[in-house]
């Protein structure tokens, strides 16, 4: 089954930098389909992070409309957007994703608890997901007792444990070595294949781009190329 998860129509995002106005995103129209495993790429400052933030409802567009699963973001209140993020979107940031005083298990469990999922169900799902991302036996380690790659695995586990409509990952592999990056990509690819989880990540890394099934290239906030590979 395919279908639009996120659509952006003629979206523009302006930032004031002192007196200069920066067009971080410039009249961009883009749709992410269910099951996509897509990479956003482009030079530094091309607007990748801004696009991800807009799609996740972390930031509001200056112009244009964004729909997440047919819901127009501009028609939702702050707390509705917040709940939308909690229930439908998974985030993975570049670094320091995790709550430092919580164990891997508790970090992965956090959003489920926010959703009010009962304890038993929580436990089952968290243990399964942690096993799936290869962290069996490390459930009770805190972030500072985990390697950078392991921390990103926890972040991915946390992003997918709620079975979101889409996982938005901003340079998830930027702070890990290439072997770890490969492993993280294997993991996301596997989740995409098995669970049909939709992924959109930004990257600078050519090898990461090579593994994406859809490559969205930005330049100066505009779409330069949108290529779907076999």
């Amino acid at each position: 089954m395919t279908g639009a998860i996120v659509t952006m129509e003629n979206v523009t995002k302006l930032y004031e930098q002192g007196k200069i106005e920066v067009r971080a995103v410039d009249n961009l129209t883009l749709t992410i389909q269910k099951g996509d495993f897509a990479a956003l790429c482009g030079p530094s400052g091309s607007g990748k992070t801004t696009v991800l933030n807009l799609m996740g409802g972390l930031d509001l567009p200056t112009e244009g409309t964004i729909h997440i699963e047919q819901q127009n973001l501009s028609e939702l209140s702050r707390s509705q957007i917040s709940n939308m993020r909690r229930d439908r979107i998974g985030f993975v940031f570049q670094s320091y994703n995790l709550i430092p005083v919580m164990t891997a298990y508790e970090n992965a469990e956090f959003v489920l608890k926010l959703q009010g999922v009962p304890e038993k169900q929580c436990h089952e799902r968290v243990m399964n997901i942690l096993a799936e991302v290869g962290l069996q036996g490390l459930e009770h380690r805190r972030p500072d007792e985990l390697s950078g790659g392991q921390q990103q695995r926890v972040a991915i586990a946390r992003a997918i444990v709620t079975r979101p409509a889409i996982v938005l990952a901003d340079e998830p592999t930027a702070n890990v070595d290439s072997v770890t990056a490969d492993a993280l990509l294997d993991l996301m690819q596997e989740l995409n294949r098995v669970e049909r989880t939709t992924f959109l990540f930004s990257t600078h890394d050519q090898r990461v781009m090579d593994r994406a099934r859809r490559l969205i290239r930005l330049r100066d906030g505009r779409l330069e190329q949108d290529e779907v590979r076999a």
Partner: peptide
């Protein structure tokens, strides 16, 4: 990060 995860 917590807010991005949906914390109010």
């Amino acid at each position: 990060v917590m807010k991005a995860l949906g914390v109010g």
